[in-house]
Write a protein that binds this DNA or RNA. Structure first.
Lengths: 331, 331
DNA sequence: TTGAAAGCGCTAACAA
DNA sequence: TTGTTAGCGCTTTCAA
């Protein structure tokens, strides 16, 4: 560094401490292989000069960047925010940094992957299992551990931590069916995984001979306001007891707020189940039923899988994380 | 890359295209300075081999990493999530990536800064204006544009985009005073900036001769549940009309839910103002008054300042972003 | 418009 | 335990 003048390099430190650069490198990376006195002298030189090792140089030479790339659609969504939080923390504890890219919900993943791979990450995390063939190939040929998260598929690129969204939809339908419902509605965001939940829900409902009276697809990411508006549109056909599944807790909350405004009793006239288990669902009034998935666990597992592979361990290639319906006041 | 065998380098591409490595480099970085036919041939070789340029090598050589480091307390908080979103997007459009570190609310910033500076970022963003002296010095000596965000101070490290939290507190107090309130309470998270808002609020209240009946400090980050609990504790002294300022919309929402559960009329008996302008405040019932600050604008401004400096422009060193009280159903 | 030489700052591999 | 040599894959600089 150095405000004026040259950046301090490992050679400067070596000269200052009266050792070879390689010895400084050892002190920094594998301090056990250096005599204690020498190490102390080097450490003193380091802090005297304010030396900050150049990780680009180190990475280029060692072919290890101590960095993991991650792509998620957004961090505005509590689920992904939590996931990135736990991923980052688990990797940080192991000495790795995370380079994050946000893909939005409109594709363009290829450029993001290429951009990250340019930094030569030691591992990669991508959201979902649907990728352009070229993207898949790039990831495969990178020769690093790759984890796909938040979904399942038959043929992962490498490793996978997620759950079956269609199964979630079916489980929620089942939950309602068991409680005697026969009229259903679903508010779904337009992204792949929300739509998979919708399909699972609709299919189970159809199999049971239930009636799906409405299933609007809303723009991703979901908002409370979108939930309110969808509910407003649904009101005219809400003449009988209905069970509503929302692809996000935000939609569910909006739906409930609007329903109560309009004098629709929850849960008697309208039963509601959300998805995501945000704090909102537990701490609002009425609290509402939702599907809980431990996002933090997905992040931790993904990080652990990458780290394990980096130290040469054989790892489970596929982890299905459980989901669970949490019954609350809305159903 | 290459699943088996060596990674493709610029020399491989050069050989494939029948040119020198330097020509390939020019095609990638400054394609205008290469003959069109040559460029085409090189591009063909690049995609044939699946070449992904090594940015560590490029950065080491050019001393530009095309990367900006950023430290925020958390991305779980909607305000910081939005900010990082806009920062990332603005920088991405200019060809820069963001390396994100999460500091939590407990310090340890020094290690994060050192870790990021090791990647030789072309710019840095840090949250707040309070830093350990050593951290300050490291940032200063890095010789790169540094932006401190989300606060103001007399003596920024380099550049600053933020607002005065004490002024926010004072403005909210003023807002209540104008409406004839004389009894006040405040729920505040324990982080620096929330406490600054609290102080500003308390001071203005005191100056006006108002009574501050309660001002608990809650753990950061704020939650809805914490707001409910704080309200439960406040109930016994809520015998007169009271105005409550919460350091976060989550606390405000929790407070309102709990108050209504307990039969306290909002806004007649209890007026509430939150902070942050989350969607929750606008779309819940009753909607609630809050302080809005454009987080996205802070991110965009910070990115723009860094980018401008990187192309050698002289830049405003301090941007005060406005805040505004949005009146809604709770006050 | 293109190429050759040198070097960015570090670490692997080997030697002492 | 420490040092020397070579080279990671690019770009800068200079030359043609």
């Amino acid at each position: 560094m150095g405000a004026k003048g040259r950046t301090v390099t490992i050679s400067d430190v070596a000269a200052e401490a009266g050792v070879a650069p390689m010895t400084v490198s050892r002190v920094i990376n594998t301090s056990d292989r250096v005599a204690a006195v020498t190490a102390e002298r080097v450490q003193a030189a380091i802090s005297r000069l304010g030396y900050v090792p150049n990780l680009m140089a180190g990475g280029l030479s060692s072919r290890r960047s101590r960095m993991v790339g991650a792509i998620v659609p957004t961090i505005t969504h509590p689920m992904f925010a939590t996931l990135i939080d736990s991923l980052t923390e688990t990797l940080r504890a192991a000495g790795y940094q995370v380079m994050l890219s946000l893909s939005g919900y409109k594709g363009g993943e290829d450029d993001l992957v290429r951009g990250l791979l340019g930094r030569r990450p030691d591992g990669m995390l991508v959201t979902g299992v649907e990728h352009a063939p070229a993207t898949r190939q790039m990831l495969q040929e990178a020769g690093i551990p790759v984890v796909e998260i938040f979904d399942t598929g038959k043929r992962p690129i490498d490793m996978l931590v997620g759950f079956d969204h269609a199964a979630v939809g079916a489980a929620v339908a089942e939950y309602f069916l068991v409680r005697g419902h026969d009229r259903f509605a679903m508010f779904s965001a337009g992204d792949r995984r929300a739509l998979a939940r919708q399909h699972g829900f609709a299919e189970r409902v159809a199999t049971a001979g239930g009636q799906l009276i409405s299933a609007p697809v809303l723009p991703a990411p979901s908002t409370i306001t979108a939930g309110r508006e969808a509910m407003r549109a649904l009101l005219p056909v809400l003449d009988h007891r209905t069970a509503l599944f929302c692809s996000s807790d935000l939609l569910a909350f909006g739906a409930i707020v609007e329903a109560r405004q309009s004098g629709i009793a929850v849960p008697d006239r309208l039963a509601v189940c959300g998805f995501g288990d945000f704090e909102l669902g537990a701490a609002s009034e009425p609290s509402f039923t939702t599907v809980t998935v431990e996002a933090a666990r997905i992040g931790r597992n993904a990080a652990a899988m990458i780290l394990a592979r980096l130290v040469g361990q054989t790892v489970e290639r596929r982890i299905e994380v459980p989901f669970r319906i949490v019954q609350r006041g809305s159903s």
